[in-house]
Write a protein that binds this DNA or RNA. Sequence first.
RNA 1: UGGGGUGUAGCCAAGUGGUAAGGCACAAGGUUUUGAUCCUUGCAUGCGUUGGUUCGAAUCCAGCCACCCCAGCCA
Length: 579
Amino acid sequence: MTDSDTDSKDSSAGPASSNFIRHMIAQDLAEGKHGGRVHTRFPPEPNGYLHIGHAKSICLNFTVAAENEGLCNLRFDDTNPEKESQEYVDAIKENINWLGFHWHGEVRYSSNYFSELYEFAVQLIGRSCAFVCSLSAQESREYRGSLTEPGRNSPDRERSVAENLDLFARMKAGEFEDGAYSLRAKIDMASPNINMRDPVLYRIRHIEHHQTGSEWCIYPTYDYSHCISDAIENITHSLCTLEFEDHRPLYNWILQHLDIHSLRAASDLADSDLDYVLPQQTEFAKLRLNYTMMGKRNLREMVESGVVSGWDDPRMPTLAGMRRRGFTPASIRNFCESIGVARSDSVVDMAMLEHAIRDDLDKVAPRAMCVLNPLKVTLSNIEAGHVESLSMANHPKDEAMGRRQVALTREIVIDRADFEEQPAAGFKRLRPGGEVRLRGAYVMRCDEVVKDDAGKVVELVCSVDKATLGKKPEGRKVKGVVHWVSADLGVKVSVRLYDRLFNVENPEAKDVADYRACLNPDSIVELSDCMLEAAAVGESAASSFQFEREGYFCLDVADSRAGKPVFNRTITLRDSWSD
RNA sequence: UGGGGUGUAGCCAAGUGGUAAGGCACAAGGUUUUGAUCCUUGCAUGCGUUGGUUCGAAUCCAGCCACCCCAGCCA
């Protein structure tokens, strides 16, 4: 086991699939490029909750390290205190642990390195590679030029080293107000790559930081801090998403313009005799899922506007939401492995995710019977008060999951959808005069349909064939099987049926003016009169079940109350019949 | 119209000069006391496109087309 190993083996995970990052690392290892080390990092900014897209990156970074006896750090990229908070730090750590990954050593923060980052900035100034600029944000935008036109040099670009040093020290000391000055790299205002047009390295922000409090009033930018943080942590492979590709020249420029000996001295490996090698950035395509919004800004918007109940609403693509929905860590890891890692923009079909969770839950979730829309059935040839205890397997293929007792009584409930007075062709369930198998029990015949004044079916009077317990009926075939629960001995529960949040494939598409117009009005349907078999509730009950013939459900711990459990539908069963 | 990328089936994706893996989805059978699971079979004479090189090209070369990213003191 290494630090980056996962908690459990994924029994269902096939062999690791080939991808360009695995190839690259194998080749780097073969060439001894980083002294045989593989050290990755997952660098979230604590400005929101992790979502399934982050899971792809987490799985990539941690598994690629584990596969090569390497290490993976967790580093909060916390250089913009304005948008960040401890709440997010805590949630992110918990999500990663829940997924089953363990970062190497202590949690890191870019803010851990603020002192080093400052000293390296002083070094860049000393080397005439950076200068203090007095242009406002607006002015600097004008000076930057455009996609097709080169920019112009800042009037401060040739400020003396001494003056730059003095100004930068005073920036740090808090002498200036926000925006009065910035520290910029001195690269090339005519570069076709706009990121190289003297990018800002430090900005003044008189604001409290969740980790460093009021110690600093200047904060480094992403481009400046990320590469140096990687170098300090001796990261070998810095994996990020495609939009940072244009930043790679800057990533390399900063590291190459710093004294490698001082970089080494500031790094975790300062005292080792390993070769000091600069980290290399490699980009891959981020995950996109259809019928889903992944933009942090949009997710936050949905939470704040109350479109969903919170970051952990079971309809959210956040890890917190998916967990509450009933997704297992293994299902998410398997999904991330199954989608691959490549450089082409792609949109993964939701069906892939649904397959991953069904695949895992089919194996691990015990079965139970729960009637969602109860219809009373009186079994005329079972005495009132009689309780027949039937033994049922918790899993049809896994005896190790044990058995449970299920009570059959005179009055039971079945689902309304399992009875039709005038069924369409192919209907295998109950009809007047027809027979159906009560799952795990007897074959039952419908003798009488009881209706109310409005003509609504309110009860069925049926009789069971007592010769059919564990046996096929004689002289006829009964195709349909129906789940049921004792009306007296079952437990009343609430069940939330979840469906996709959006009814368009891409709610973030440019031609969608407002995602609110694309919300699926049936993304949550709450049923409060469901009847669940008693064995499925209580202290020792499992948290996830397959409610037979319906789908996979999990107990909602947050909203369940004593005597009134609430279950969330994780996903339906595949249904080749379709209602 | 500058720079950086990407195009293999409905979706994801392997493939790195020797004749198109795999998964999802879908379809058809079989098993089944879950219309589930499981099993079997089918599903690209074709790799954005047009040319070229080669005995041989998804792989190499050239042109063209489409789409994505970049002008935050966000990450």
